[in-house]
Design a protein around this nucleic acid. Structure first.
Lengths: 337, 337
DNA sequence: TAATCGCCGGAAAACGCTTTCCGTATCCGA
DNA sequence: TCGGATACGGAAAGCGTTTTCCGGCGATTA
């Protein structure tokens, strides 16, 4: 098995020093004379030389890798964010190393450690963290160690003191949604709240409840459950069983849950929005092709990913930065006449 | 800014040699005595030592990174595959570096080059390649160079002579779909073929047409267009404009196109499956929540990703390997009475 | 009891690149 | 003609690991 050509092979073949070959092939502030430059380039082409990035990273003590950790790539929310992150990283000449945690906080911490070992240039952490202070502290410690030795990090989701964060305006978005739905005439609501102890879910639930309260409406029925499609499905069934008739509108704290809820309601023969209106949160792309199209709160997912990359790379210590959430009313919610 | 603790720091603190520290902390065939082992471990803990993987990769000349290149992470097909790849790689202790090409073959070649420069352990290429022989040859050459110096590669999709490949049975799947639809009584079909020169799309179109021909049915109307949701939408509109009344069943060569077509038909007030039946291909997860639920040909997406990783990592020269495709009839296709 | 073997610790040479430091050659203006 | 920049080539010292030797030592064998 022939080994890859090294810079030394190139230098030898071109009859120049290692230093010169390096300067020609891998950028440098220094100039190299035309004649030698040509010789080196030709030698490199003949040998099919490709820079060994691992060696380069070691020598420069700076890699060109950006780490990304998400919960689940097959969740459209993260897929969208990841897509934007990969794209933005590419624009900065960085490759992306991605990890999926499947919502296991331990895995998340582990991934940060792995990325730190890789000495990646920056880490983008997407997805909300747990409310468990002990776990959060450990994650925090891991990030601190990374940042302590020159690493950069940015989060998407919950603010984690002192780390640059793109924070979607969950609270205000949900609150506005509540107001918009109330304007349609609804008064009795249910919220599929997701798991207790998930900050994003909690914020959205709180914002929604607050919106209702400020209008003098009764507090919503709260149904917890997993944060995914099947969780929404199950929660909706539970809702029907327990509070079948009282409620006219249900808010699932994220879109995939709302999709599951929609399926459950359809399965139970409940007309949406005829009998019950449904709303979600995030505005994942698949939503528009559902029947009925789902009312939701739009988050600029791609933009958030892009912004996180810039935050993680940028020199400006931006601190926390809000991503505006916007209510989008579609067919799944109707006005009560 | 303090720098990361190095192995040398650890060795000094523990009062042992570099060799010993390395053997303790980063695995080795060699044993280290109990006393020294403890000293090293304690020193490492005190200093917060983390192996520098770049340096390790250089010294071992073997990285623990797996490269993955997909077209578009926000396409559920690739999201599903990528998810499985990341998971499978994790089981083998590898991290995944991912690139997205957005269907640009040049970008694909470029990414393979990047991954080669990174000296990744293996590369998994998902997504069908172009029919342009010149581009394919260049991609092939790039892969060859990678494999020529000990890299491993596996593809998902079209077979590329001599590279291990997981190939979905597009032809047979489409053919069986055609037969199943014919059995429902349909005789006049349209196929939304995707772009000309995309092998996967061509295979599926051909298999479908062949199925019809073997039953003595007329050839389908062929409508080309982009391979994505909007492409399907546009193609369906075109179909309605040109052949509005003749056709009773349309096959979009992938699910995202079928979803777009469904939306277009709904937008045009065409009842599905009342007036036109619609079928797709892939069975992406979002399908089940559509109304009507979409008939499709199921591909074991996650399994394909997992298998590709094993192919790329495994010692067994498996060659091309088929992934069985299975017709799944749902509500979007109805029997003609 | 001497010869042999296994174990285990360390010195040092890679791995493939970057970058500092030095030295020589060339150019400019006076 | 000379002094001082300026430009550019190369030697060599890293970057943080792994791994090959080599040597010493205690235990086994004859």
């Amino acid at each position: 098995m022939p080994r890859d050509a090294t810079l030394e092979d190139v230098a030898r073949q071109a009859g120049v020093s290692l230093a010169t070959a390096s300067r020609v092939l891998n950028g440098s502030t220094r100039q190299v004379g035309r004649a030698l430059r040509d010789r080196v380039e030709q030698a490199a082409a003949e040998l099919g030389y490709t820079t060994n990035r691992a060696a380069q990273a070691l020598a420069r003590s700076a890699s060109d890798i950006l780490g990304l950790v998400v919960h689940d790539l097959s969740d459209p929310y993260f897929a969208e964010v990841a897509n934007a992150v990969v794209r933005a990283a590419g624009r900065h000449g960085l490759s992306v190393m991605v990890g999926t945690t499947f919502r296991d906080p331990e895995a998340e911490i582990g991934y940060v450690a792995t990325l730190r070992a890789q000495r990646v240039r920056a880490i983008v952490l997407a997805g909300s963290r747990s409310a468990d202070p002990e776990v959060t502290a450990r994650l925090r410690a891991e990030i601190d160690r990374f940042q302590g030795t020159g690493g950069r990090a940015a989060l998407i989701g919950q603010d984690l003191l002192g780390v640059d964060t793109v924070v979607p305006d969950n609270h205000a978005g949900s609150r506005e949604l509540a107001e918009a739905l109330a304007r349609l005439g609804h008064t009795r609501f249910a919220v599929l709240t997701g798991p207790p102890g998930l900050l994003t879910a909690a914020d959205r639930t709180a914002g929604f409840a607050e919106g209702l309260a400020s209008l003098g409406l009764p507090a919503p029925v709260l149904i917890p459950g997993p944060f995914d499609r099947d969780g929404g499905h199950a929660a909706a069934r539970e809702l029907l069983a327990a509070h079948g008739t009282e409620v006219t509108c249900v808010f699932a704290v994220n879109d995939v849950m709302a999709v599951g809820a929609l399926a459950a309601l359809r399965g139970a023969g409940v007309d949406v929005p005829g009998r019950i209106s449904v709303a979600g949160f995030d505005d994942i792309p698949t939503l528009r092709d559902l029947t009925p199209a789902l009312t939701t709160v739009r988050l600029p997912l791609a933009e958030m990913g892009t912004r996180a990359v810039e935050l993680a790379l940028g020199a400006d210590p931006a601190g926390a930065e809000a991503a505006r959430a916007r209510v989008v009313l579609r067919e799944s919610t109707r006005a009560l006449t």
